[in-house]
């Protein structure tokens, strides 16, 4: 963590301690949520998309301004069958349209590709957190590098301890397969089948929801955090997506930084209203997750529901 980020965290923490949570709605004016609106929108998400649940998380990390049983939202074991980079390559190869509304380059409706011509402009508008020094190498890395790399040289080779055949059982009723993986777009690379736990917390400072990702490889071993960035749109991978302490769970997790969420949501709400759709605050998370899908295009979490957004283009 670089100094500037630490300073910002300290500042943010102080402000959070000293300010009261938002109680007056500024949903339409600023694209932000009050605590009670977050609960309302979360309840609606859980009821329409029951793969999402409320959880209480670590007791020691509990936030007093949220109900103890509704601290954050989570959906587990969400498939991610291919890497975001490969989707983008295909998309670019197909010469796809990119930004629906390119005037000020917010990119909130960006589909999965990256614009070819105005790359520089876009980069300036994406907030940079300057925290991740990830190599540009986007190739799929061997998972064993996480467990067998230089730093972990002390871990013994498990093969030394392989059990004699009589322990595991030659049982004709056990389906024998190396591991049970999903069908792949191409069958060549088994490492592509990952799953994610996706959680949504309330960020008191920015007054918006915040998305967190915990990745697992095809045998459900924890994915090295840096590899998570392969599943993030490459425009965001080193900028808006950072790796920080989760507010309700142990350890560090990848997160879409919320500093622009309010502005992006405000823009979405403005577009809806200009089309004559009156946005309702309990639908906030559906709109929000739709927007987040542009950041993590290949993680197939559920945010679908039947409601009229006024246009099929969103």
């Amino acid at each position: 963590m670089v100094l500037s980020q630490k300073l910002h965290e300290a500042f943010k923490g102080t402000v959070e301690r000293m300010t009261n949570p938002r109680t007056v709605s500024a949903f339409k004016e600023k694209g932000v949520l009050s605590i009670s609106e977050f609960i309302l929108a979360g309840d609606n998400l859980v009821s329409k998309c029951p793969t999402w649940s409320w959880e209480s998380g670590e007791p020691s990390k509990r936030k007093s301004y949220l109900p103890s049983e509704k601290q954050f939202l989570i959906t587990r074991n969400v498939p991610c069958l291919r890497r975001a980079a490969s989707v983008e390559e295909e998309y670019e190869a197909a010469g796809g349209e990119v930004l629906l509304d390119n005037d000020d380059n917010d990119g909130w409706l960006a589909t999965h590709g990256k614009p070819k011509g105005n790359k520089c402009d876009e980069e300036e508008n994406l907030p940079s957190m300057e925290t991740l020094e990830i190599s540009k190498n986007n190739t799929i890395q061997s998972i064993s590098s996480y467990f067998g790399g230089e730093e972990e040289e002390d871990i013994p080779d498990m093969a030394e301890y392989e059990e004699p055949d009589n322990l595991i059982e030659t049982d004709p009723a056990t389906l024998q397969s190396t591991y049970l993986v999903a069908h792949e777009p191409d069958d060549d690379n088994i490492l592509r089948t990952r799953t994610y736990d996706v959680s949504i917390t309330y960020d008191k400072y920015y007054q918006t929801p915040r998305v967190w990702l915990t990745g697992y490889d095809e045998s459900r071993m924890l994915l090295q955090r840096e590899l998570v960035l392969e599943d993030v749109s490459q425009d965001h991978a080193r900028k808006t997506v950072t790796i920080e302490d989760h507010p309700h769970l142990p350890g560090k997790h990848a997160s879409v930084h919320p500093c622009r969420h309010g502005a992006v949501m405000k823009k979405i709400i403005d577009v809806l209203m200009s089309r004559g759709v009156e946005p309702e605050v309990d639908k906030y998370l559906f709109l929000f997750l739709k927007f987040v899908a542009s950041v993590i295009p290949t993680i197939e979490y559920d945010y679908t529901m039947d409601f009229d957004l006024g246009s099929s283009s969103i």
Binding site: F147, M158, L167, I168, T178
Partner: peptide, 16 residues
């Protein structure tokens, strides 16, 4: 089974 073998699993969380 761990990746098709009769071996235990091991995870390092030193980083966190």
């Amino acid at each position: 089974f761990n990746r098709g073998k009769k071996v235990p699993r091991c995870i390092s969380l030193a980083k966190s």
